[in-house]
């Protein structure tokens, strides 16, 4: 990392697998995704294993995450999106775990791979579009013509709305990926200053310690933003305008 701040994002094959000529190897990214799933699942199993009416600290923490996600979904879909709660909760917990694992020592930031964030965003986009058509049929297309649009402006507004709709998954994936990449590159660059600054090397180290705290905040915030935007898009599909 000292020589190349981008080296930390390299995908390394741990267990080569080929299927019909396609490379589906088990990589460091796959390993960290599996670790994230194990951590989140174990956390909730342990938290609710001995669930009591008056919760302990562990159970209370797990319940507060659950309630927080449910409240976010309810606020944004006006209480009509509860059937999507398992998806939203899993998405939030998975992204939080992946982002935080990226900050752990010897960790790998899976969410800094745009292909991963694009896949998340594409799944959300498909879910929103399918939900819209299932709930409203072709009336869902009225999403592209906001109420009160003057008739002479309608063709332009429809084109812009359709364009903005397709931009959503791109923006969603870039937002998460870019934020994770930026923080990790900055830390990688500053690590290079430690040896260069000689006796003053403690200054970049102190900055890295502080910045790591900020990165933990960013990791949770970005997962929250991804989740809340998913809820906002779901609201468009459920309640239209």
């Amino acid at each position: 990392m000292k020589d190349n701040p981008l080296g930390q994002f390299a995908i390394k094959t741990l267990y080569p697998i080929t299927l019909n000529g396609h490379d589906i190897s088990f990589t460091n990214a796959s390993m960290f995704m599996a670790i994230a799933v194990i951590i989140v699942t174990s956390f909730f199993i342990l938290a609710i294993r001995k669930s009591e009416l008056i919760p302990g600290r562990f159970q209370s923490f797990a319940e507060s995450i659950y309630n927080f996600t449910l409240m976010t979904l309810d606020e944004n879909t006006h209480g009509k999106g509860q059937q999507f709660f398992p998806f939203i909760f899993s998405l939030f917990m998975f992204i939080v775990a992946l982002n935080l694992l990226g900050n752990a020592p010897y960790g790998f930031s899976v969410t800094s791979q745009l292909i991963v964030t694009s896949t998340f965003a594409f799944v959300v986009f498909c879910l929103v579009t399918i939900t819209g058509f299932v709930k409203h049929g072709f009336k869902f297309l009225s999403l592209f013509l906001p109420e009160g649009t003057p008739i002479f402006m309608a063709p332009l507004i429809v084109v812009l709305e359709i364009f903005a709709y397709f931009v959503r998954p791109v923006a969603l994936s870039i937002r998460l990926g870019a934020n994770m990449i930026a923080g990790h590159i900055l830390i990688g660059v500053i690590v290079g200053f430690i040896t260069l600054m000689g006796i003053w090397g403690f200054l970049p180290i102190s900055f890295i310690v502080l910045f790591n705290g900020f990165e933990i905040f960013v990791a949770i915030l970005q997962a929250y933003i991804f989740t809340i935007l998913t809820c906002v898009y779901l609201n468009d599909a459920i309640n239209l305008h």
Binding site: F163, A164, F166, V167, R168, V170, A171, L172, I174, R175, A178
Partner: peptide, 11 residues
């Protein structure tokens, strides 16, 4: 900001 970047990339 990311909407603008996303739009340009998509375009």
């Amino acid at each position: 900001s990311s909407e603008i970047i996303g739009a340009v990339i998509f375009g």
